[in-house]
Each structure stands twice: as C-alpha cells, then as structure tokens.
Write a protein that binds this DNA or RNA. Structure first.
Lengths: 340, 340
DNA sequence: TTTAATTACGAAATCGTTTTCGTACACTTC
DNA sequence: GAAGTGTACGAAAACGATTTCGTAATTAAA
C-alpha cells in the first residue's frame, strides 16, 4: 500500500494493466462503465501516475526550462510570471536555470538539457555572439527553444524582443530635447543583442541631431557589481556638463543614482538620466526616474506561446515561412529625472 | 544514430550494458582500463543518460520544487537565488510553482507533487492555518519539505524564518520614539505566520509603552492589489495625527507611498512609515524608506541546506531531536521616512 | 448460415536505465 | 590438486507507465 501504481490498481479492479491505462486516458476502446469504475477507484485510492515512467515511455516531459542571466531583477521575474501563466494553463512544469551572466555557465546548462529532460527551452542569452555551438546542438537534437529579450541573431530560432532600436532612439531624442549636451550610454557589454540595438538607436538619434562625436560616451560597465560601480563613478568625475545618461538596464541606473547621492550630483539639474526599467518604484524615486518600460509579462507570455507552438509542431513538416519574430513595444515614461 | 543510449554505447564497445553502466558510475567491479575506454567513447559520442529512465529506476529525480506565493517580489527572487546557489552546487534541478497567494492553488500544487516528481519541496505558505491536510500527506508519503518565511506551525517540518517578533517590536519601538501617536500595522492577512509574528511584536511594543488602544490600527489590506489600494486610501482619509505605519510587507509600503503622493500626504512630516523590504532602491526613494530587511539570500540557502539534509537522511532513523528551526536576523535601516 | 465488422479487453513488448545474481577465469592456500 | 578467494564481466529482472497487436464475444451484413 506504500505507493499506488497502475498494477495494484488493475489488480484491485480485476482488470488488466493495459485496460486501466487506456481507461485513464479515456480511450475509445474502453466502455463508459469500465472507465467510470477505473476513474472512481483511482480517485479513491489517490492514484497518481509515475511521471518518470510516463516520460520515459512517451518521450516527453511536460516540462520546459527557463534559462536567464539573473532572477533578482524585476524584468526577469515579471517575464517568469508571464511564462508561468501559460505553462500553468497547459499543465507544464517550469525549471529555472540561472547563468549569472556567465556564458560558459549558459553553455553548460544548455548542453545538459540536451539529455531530454525538457520539451523546450526559453532563453535570454548571456552568451557572446561568437559562441553559438550549443544552440546549434539544440537544433540538431530537435529541442525547440525560443529567445526572449536577449537573442542570438545568428541562430535560427523564434524570438520575442522589444523595439529596442526605436526605444533607444526615442529616449535619446528625449534627452536631446531636454537640452543635454553630453550623452552617455550605459551598457553591460557589447555582446548582447537587446543592448546593442538600444545603443544603435542611441547613436542614430545623436547622428540625426548632429551631436558632436566627442560628446558621445559609451560606457561598458560590465556585469560585475563592484567593478561597474567603479567604472560609472570614474566616468562621472569630472562630470561632463549637461550630461544625459541613457542606461540600457535598470541596475546601472540604480547604481548611478547611488553614486550621485554619494558624490552629490543633482539629478536632473546636473545630470539627466533615463533607463530601461521595470521598477515598480520608478515614480517614487528621488527624483522620479524616467523609464522605458518593457512589457515584461507579455514577453514571457508570448515567448511561452511560441515555444509551446514549436513543441506541438515538432516532427511535423515545418512550413518554410519566416521564423516567428514577435516584437513588442516598450513604453516611455517621462519623469523628473530628465526634467529641464 | 538519432539518439545515443547505453545500449548503442555498449554495442559499440563490445561490452554488456551492465558493464557500461557500472563503468559510468565508477563501480569497483570494473577495471580501470575498461572504465577509461567507456568514458572516452561516451564523451566522444556525446552520450548523456536518459534522466527519466534513471529517475524511474533509482526512484529519485534530482529535482526540488519551490512553491511561492509570487515571484515578482524582491524577497522571493532573492530567496530563489539562494536556493539556486545550493541546488546548482549539488546538481539538483529547481522547479518553480507560483500560488498567486491562493491557498487552493497551493494545495493543488502540493497534491500534484505527491506523485514523486521531486525529491523535496521548499514552501513559503499561502495556506490558511486551518488547512494542513496537504502537508500531512507529504509527511505520509515521505516527501521532505521545508518551510521558509511563511511557515505553518501546526505541521512538523523544518523551518527557516526570521526574528519577526523582535523585528516587529524593534520597528514599532522606533516609531514610538519618533513621536508617533497613532500606529497602524499593514497586514496581508491574519493567516500568515511571519506576518502575525510581526504583528505580535508590534502589539507588544505598543503595550509596553502603554499606547492607548484606540490609537492602534490593524489594517488587513489583503492580497488583491486594487482592493488593498482602496483599503489603505480609506484608512488614510482622514489622516490620524502623527501616524506611524509599520508595513509587514514591501508591497503595501509602496502602495502607501503612491497613495501619499496622490493625496498629498507628506512623509515623514505627516506620516512616518517603516516596512519589511528587500527593495534595492529603498534608500533612493522620496523620502528614503526605513526598512527591516530580511537576509533573503541566506534564507534561501539555509532552507535548501535543510531540505537536502532531509533528502539525504530519508529512510534513515531520525534522531528524536527537535526539528530544525533556523531563525535568522533582519536588519533595521533607519532612513528619512521615519525621521522626526 | 456464413462472413465481416465491431466492441472491449488482455498479453507482452517497449522506453533506457540500474542492480542483483551468476559465473568463468586466474590465483592463492594447505 | 582440491578448495577457497578475488576479479571482471554478462544475463536478466526490475522501475511503472504506454502502446501494439491479438483475440473472444457480440452484432451486423450478405
């Protein structure tokens, strides 16, 4: 009695294992009366099929993996919320893997997932553009995956991204119109698609408005907290006049706020700043932070939908259409931090 | 060649399946030379054991589940970070389930997990104290689990919590010494252990300082965003004089900030507020928010360690000692929001 | 009445591992 | 040289489901 399984259930019912299995799956081969009996006893004895036996036989796990650079980050946790909302509905399970922004870690995780533990993968890449091998192995193994936010554009896989270029352009234009004279772009690295698109938008706007190239600063702060603090602080001393900062990620904007507080730089008087961010407290900051806010929940949802579509279509003939490439819009919130 | 498995590997090596399996597990029965050959070819052919076959046979999944009320919440994502740090080290996989604060949802998830999909569970309960049945079923099934932050004290399971009572007392004392005259406790519900302990500390402090009971307000805002907004707003109109608010969770404090902004209540002049919170931007808010900050990462780590200990000891004779009950300390950060 | 089709079930193979037993062979020990 | 002792491997039985393939019994069609 320790553990219920289909064999005991069958014995109890005086039926064969196969009949019980079919009854539980509502097979047409089994008559209604028998099905009812089986269902009833299964419920009564609290029978739950062993998921591993099932997965082994069916070769499907009802599980997806989410591979993200970090989790303690509003954007990613909102995305997970979106993913979960779909997964839950489809009765899929969600495994979380965190790369801590280490490309080798991502590779290792992806390579591990080649073993079939999951039916599909959602990835926000920490990888560098020159290393796609592990993605190609996924393709080869036939494991569906979808990029979200940070995609690798050299890999043929569905993507859900935001209009990073346009948003970057828009944010920069806003800084220009707010009378900034110097412009800085805070970047994590020059290897991340989303961030580079934002930078491209930034540069395009500056070009269009004919900003003197010597007034344009690209700050690669990197992913190490201590180091990026140092890099930003160094950049701000001495402070370029009428500096407008466009931070490509929330974290760097917050660090900038901390540094300004520390070394007494007044926002927005001496320095204006706008950032990509999903901070629920952006409007409550001192001063309120102007943001470009991505529809994080929707990104998760759309990515999950695409993934489940791929999973469903697996093995079937793929129509040679263009790859799904959903692009969602970010929203610009102008607040005090960029006030004239 | 589609998919490598141990059978093909064995054939390729002219060895039996059992020998290969033993070699891969470094069994003493297999001589070094053979092991090397097996390992070499396994690596070359990129052999990865099927996890489901393994799990089925071994009756262990190398997977744990984390069941939390919500994920887009600094506290919980930090906890997950802590959990992941341990799981990753032990090569365990982490499944995430979100209850959205719905007790029935939690029950359903836990009941599902009785099927053996995971080797253990970490839970921050959304359950009400009068419903423990699902936890007892876990005990009965022998599935180890550990509570963190929000525990159910009627269930015999290891717990990792914080010194909620003391922290609540301390925060309240701080409000009292900041010359508040009215005191409000913002709660999600009166069914959550951690929050109730905070409330107990709050009440104890008020009693010790002989605060007039009519000056004490317990606001149960609930988990619904719109509703809680309404409830807090109603409470603040008209505004009790010299009000000191102790918010049991970050979310309600942020809502309070928004409301104060909206209806022009000045913090800390007209209203002082302190909150449990892991906001990285607490110091940057307008005004900077006084907080009690839980060691979220450590909570996750400790909880995971306890869980893995239980998993390891499973089946062995349990020494009849007291249940592990790790209590970590929160840190009080006094900032402008409670300034005199 | 015979044949064909349908209904409702069961036996057994299968998924890919792990593990328990055997056992052949070489080597010691007395 | 018989008995015992390792050493190194293989055959086969699990693990618990799903699925294929049969088949007895009933019903329908010719």
């Amino acid at each position: 009695m320790e553990n219920m399984n289909i064999k005991k259930l069958a014995k109890e019912l005086n039926l064969s294992v196969s009949t019980v299995s079919k009854a539980l799956h509502d097979s047409y081969e089994i008559k209604a009366e028998t099905k009812e009996k089986v269902l009833a006893l299964a419920k009564q004895l609290n029978y739950q099929p062993n998921p591993f036996a099932s997965s082994l036989r069916r070769n499907s796990s009802k599980t997806i993996a989410v591979v993200i650079p970090e989790i303690a980050h509003n954007f990613f946790s909102l995305v997970i919320n979106g993913i979960e909302s779909i997964a839950e509905e489809l009765k899929y399970h969600v495994l979380i893997y965190i790369t801590h922004e280490i490309p080798e870690k991502e590779e290792q995780i992806i390579r591990h997932l080649l073993n079939g533990r999951v039916d599909g993968i959602l990835i926000s890449s920490s990888g560098t553009s020159n290393n796609n091998a592990h993605y190609h192995e996924l393709v080869q193994k036939g494991i569906p995956f979808v990029f979200f936010d940070r995609a690798n554009f050299d890999v043929d896989a569905p993507r859900v991204t935001t209009d990073d270029y346009q948003a970057g352009f828009q944010a920069t234009e806003h800084l220009i119109k707010s009378q900034c004279k110097h412009f800085a772009f805070l970047s994590l690295s020059n290897q991340m698609s989303a961030i580079n698109h934002r930078k491209d938008g930034f540069l395009a706007a500056l070009k269009q408005y004919q900003i003197e190239p010597s007034h344009v600063h690209i700050i690669e702060a990197g992913t190490d907290e201590t180091l990026s603090f140092q890099i930003i602080r160094d950049f701000l001393q001495p402070l370029p006049v009428s500096l407008g900062i466009f931070s490509s990620v929330e974290k760097l904007a917050i660090q900038t706020y901390h540094i300004c507080k520390e070394i007494d730089i007044m926002i927005p008087k001496q320095l204006k700043i706008i950032s990509f961010s999903n901070l629920p407290t952006a409007a409550l900051l001192n001063p309120a932070l102007s943001t470009l806010t991505q529809p994080a929940f929707s990104i998760g949802k759309e990515a999950a939908l695409l993934l489940f579509q791929s999973i469903k279509n697996k093995g079937k003939i793929q129509p040679i259409t263009t790859l799904p490439n959903v692009v969602l819009k970010s929203t610009l919130f102008i607040r005090e931090s960029t006030k004239m």
